[in-house]
Amino acid sequence: MSAPPPVPPPPVPRHIAIIMDGNGRWAARHGLPRAAGHREGVQAVRRTIEAAIGHGVEWLTLFAFSSENWRRPVEEVTDLTFLLRHYLRSELRELAEAGVRLHIIGERDRFGSSLKAELADAEARTAANRKLNLVIALSYGARAEIATAARRIAEAAMAGTLDPTTVDETIFAAHLSTAGMPDPDLVIRTSGEQRLSNFLLWQAAYAELVFDDALWPDFGAANLGRAIAEYARRERRFGARPGPADAPPDGEGP
């Protein structure tokens, strides 16, 4: 009797995007200032990057600082930007040695010329790495990103370099900050909240969503593994129906 064919491994999402939520609540739960929660969140970033590489994930996008975060108290924004600068300086060599390529999306101009230059330098120094593409969303908001893309397309049409009748989803996506990146297959949000909060609204149109009750500083390899396992259990149809193409309609939605 011939041996049964090998069971294929469960699918691993090519691109995982994470809304890292709960730093402030973690700090409050431990009787610590909010800055301590943000610092502990950096440790969760390190664990998650290592776990993503271990699973063979190609792209990992982390929502680090939203465009709405500028409305927070000045002291907290200062702590966040200081932590970002410290992370770049202390972790860049380790990221490079691990084969991680860094990408930044969002309105980096708002961080000032010095930090903007450090972000560009970090991207350039990791540009040859191929183990994992790490995308950090900074001062990022999906609605602003979509509006900017629409404005760029309108400007190109007015300049005569783009025929507006040719604009389709592919052309529109090429004007987003994520141009050239695959759309996320899986979006994870921590802290038990169940919303996208203006994150990758265009790109996540067909992403699987997983909501984890863990506060971000408590997130680690086990949490990521469970989210990937949940992703593997789901059937992704992208609006199509399973089975033969001529199967009768059954009223099923997306």
Rank of each mutant, 00 (worst) to 15 (best):
A150H: 05
D246P: 03
T178V: 13
R71M: 00
K131V: 12
E155W: 03
G253R: 14
G220C: 05
I18P: 10
L80A: 13
R47G: 09
A157E: 07
I228W: 08
N129Y: 01
P6W: 00
R34W: 06
A142G: 15
L215F: 11
M158Q: 10
A142C: 04
T178F: 04
G56L: 03
A179C: 09
F238I: 03
R226Q: 11
W26I: 04
A17F: 02
R101K: 13
L196K: 01
Q43H: 14
T148H: 15
D185V: 02
A98D: 14
E97V: 02
P5Q: 10
S139T: 08
V135G: 08
A28F: 06
L162P: 03
T61F: 06
A159T: 06
A117V: 03
A150R: 13
G99Y: 06
I18H: 00
L196E: 03
A157N: 01
P249S: 05
F238H: 08
R130A: 11
D109L: 11
G106I: 14
H30G: 04
P9F: 10
P182I: 09
S114H: 11
E107T: 09
L200S: 12
P184A: 08
R47P: 04
G54I: 10
R85I: 00
W202N: 00
H86E: 15
S66T: 07
R101F: 08
L84S: 04
F63D: 04
L83H: 01
F65C: 09
V74E: 14
P164M: 12
E40P: 08
A221H: 12
G37S: 15
R14I: 11
V12M: 11
P242C: 08
R233I: 04
Y87V: 06
R110T: 13
H30S: 02
A247V: 15
L84A: 13
R189H: 07
F172P: 02
R241I: 10
E91T: 06
V42W: 04
S2F: 10
P164C: 12
F82V: 03
L176E: 15
A179H: 14
A98P: 07
G112Y: 09
G192K: 05
A64P: 08
G37H: 09
H38N: 10
Q203M: 04
A150G: 14
M181Y: 11
F82P: 01
